[in-house]
Design a protein around this nucleic acid. Structure first.
Length: 559
RNA sequence: UGGGGCGUAGCCAAGUGGUAAGGCAUCGGGUUUUGAUCCCGUGUACCGUAGGUUCGAAUCCUACCGCCCCAGCCA
């Protein structure tokens, strides 16, 4: 999709920004993507990334990458690094405009003392458990803390001593003085600062207290002159708090928060807690396991970033939460790869075919088209020989009607090579087919017979002599159920067959020059790319996504 | 049963008072040296339900129903 044909994206957020611009409420749009560096980015984050960076691009504004690093107990530098890499890979500038909430710790602290002096915040001695009990429930109002009415002077002193590290974790906290009876629980004197004796990845040991999300986010937006703070639906209840801080603090700009629904994808999980579980308990091989819905996993699987962006654009931005079918993502990936990927041949379940009337020592070099959708991709040479491999599923001794492949006495086209007819089947004592013998039509070089006879079936093949061996990883959905995320037994839904390793595959010679990340099509099979672990003596390919297959769909329906 | 949201075909989603876009999937058909791609066609959506206002309602009003989120010193 080039600039001219690219459709104009429209949704309630872009509509709002449009009118804000035309009505002069803003003259420059600033958004931000605010990940907490406590895990790898996944496809759900991609939605937020594409929205925030996309909107900034479309309206000529700016999008800040801001690490929301207010909780050192969970955050790590490796996550910061991975996030920068992933955002960049998606095609957005993640390096020249990086911000950290921790850069604002001093300012945030100053604002905390400001609230203390205005008697809008107080130091509470209640323990976390007591605070919970005092908070009330969804239907019962909370109770005010006995420490709620300390003097500004005492609070200022206590806050200073909290910062100085005079108290143990959990011993005291700073709370906003709002309304313990509010029907919105977020307004029942939310905690602003907690004591955490934990070194921070960036600020080290300089802080003993750390701001909570609610006290940090809106103010950070204000500091960065963010105009539209776009977040997911679960923060809707926090908006009154977000605004409360902006109204009661001497901030210089007034960002506005807008909420959209987060992405739910079928047959996978998209919560960081669950993804961490999959990694740490070795249900997958790591954050970048190709079965993971992480950006890193999809990259390793061979998914192009443009396909991810396109998918995000297709599903739209709304406030209604639904679940998008994984097949929709797969389909979008296929669509992109179909246009761009080079065609190659590989056999993943080899069955040897011997062409009895083909010269024994001849290496017949044939011409094959690299990409029928892109003439500029040109052609390549592939070597044909007397012994070749075909897919075991492309031969049937007793084929059903309309089986357009190889069978005894039947003729089939070997793609870009010759027409061959099966003459003999060799089996072992158990009846397993060991090899198949054929005769070829020497006049059919390239695939067409001079007499013009029609041969319906075309199958792929690889020369036994002029080829390389490889391992191929075939991936399926990580979860069997459509919505594994519901319920405590989500791990029971894991698909035990999500990874199938084919160790005896043959690939055409030129595939040895592949590089990781360059996805090619194995004709009639699907899209594949070299795995990052691949070595010259141990070539490994990953299946990105299969080709659509109406044949097996049709035959399995009959059964 | 406190508060905040959401309910348009299997899925996503336009629509903002004038008589239901589009994409994906499905199912047909055509082209094809990938059973892929491509092309053409294909959907009685009681617009959550029930009332009401109106000449006219998916759009406005009322009530009800269903689903999601909130009781971390997580974000």
């Amino acid at each position: 999709m080039n600039e001219n044909t690219k459709k104009h994206l429209r949704d309630f957020i872009r509509d709002k920004i449009s009118t804000d611009l035309t009505e002069g409420i803003n003259d420059f749009i600033v958004t931000r993507f605010p990940p907490e560096p406590n895990g790898y980015l996944h496809i759900g984050h991609a939605k937020s990334i594409c929205l925030n960076f996309g909107v900034a691009e479309e309206f000529g504004g700016r999008c800040n990458l801001r690490f929301d690093d207010t909780n050192p107990t969970k955050e790590e530098q490796i996550y910061i690094d991975s996030i920068i890499k992933d955002v960049n890979w998606l095609g957005y500038d993640s390096e020249s405009n990086i911000h950290y909430t921790s850069d604002y710790f001093e300012q945030l602290y100053e604002w905390a003392t400001f609230l203390v002096n205005k008697k809008l915040a107080y130091v509470d001695d209640l323990t976390p458990e007591e605070i919970r009990n005092y908070r009330g429930t969804l239907t019962k109002p909370g109770t005010e803390s006995p420490f709620r009415n300390r003097s500004a002077e005492e609070n200022a002193d206590l806050l200073e001593r909290m910062r100085a590290g005079e108290f143990k974790d959990g011993e005291k906290s700073l709370r906003a003085k709002i309304d313990m009876a509010s029907p919105n629980i977020n307004l029942r004197d939310p905690v602003l600062y907690r004591i955490l004796s934990k070194a921070h990845p960036r600020t080290g040991d300089t802080w003993k207290i750390y701001p909570m999300y609610d006290f940090a986010h809106g103010q950070s937006d204000a500091i960065e002159d963010v105009t539209h703070s776009l977040c997911t639906l679960e923060f809707e209840d926090h908006r009154p708090l977000y605004e409360w801080f902006l109204e009661n603090l001497p901030v210089l700009s007034k960002p506005r928060q807008y909420e959209f629904s987060r992405l739910n994808l079928s047959h996978t999980v998209l919560s960081k807690r669950k993804l961490i579980k999959l990694v740490e308990d070795n249900f997958v091989l790591g954050w970048d396991d190709p079965r993971m819905p992480t950006i890193a996993g999809m990259r390793r699987r061979g998914v192009p970033p443009t396909a991810i962006k396109d998918f995000i654009e297709r599903i739209g931005v709304t406030k209604s939460d639904g679940i998008v079918e994984m097949s929709y993502l797969d389909n979008t990936i296929r669509e992109h790869l179909n246009q761009t990927s080079l065609r190659r041949m590989a056999v993943l379940d080899p069955l040897k075919v011997i062409i009895d009337n083909f010269p024994e020592d001849l290496e017949d070099k044939l011409e094959a088209i690299n990409n029928p959708n892109d003439e500029s991709a040109g052609t390549r040479e592939i070597s044909f020989s007397r012994e070749i491999y075909i897919e075991r599923s492309d031969f049937l001794e007793d084929p059903p009607n309309k089986y357009f492949r190889l069978a005894p006495g039947k003729e089939v086209r070997l793609r870009y090579a010759y027409l061959v007819t099966c003459t003999k089947v060799i089996k072992d004592s158990n009846g397993k087919i060991l090899e198949v013998h054929c005769l070829y039509d020497p006049e059919s070089r390239g695939g067409n017979a001079p007499d013009g006879r029609k041969v319906k079936g075309t199958i792929h093949w690889v020369s036994a002599q002029y080829s390389n061996k490889a391992n191929v990883n075939l991936y399926k959905n990580l979860f069997n159920s459509e919505m594994p995320d519901t319920g405590e037994d989500w791990l029971d839904n894991i698909n035990q067959d999500s990874l199938e390793v084919r160790e005896n595959c043959y690939i055409e010679k030129c595939l040895t020059n592949s590089t990781a990340g360059e996805t090619v099509q194995f004709e009639r099979l699907g899209y594949f790319c070299l795995d990052s672990s691949s070595e010259i003596n141990n070539i490994v390919f990953n299946r990105t996504v299969s080709l659509r297959d109406t044949w097996t769909k049709k035959t399995s329906k009959v059964n």
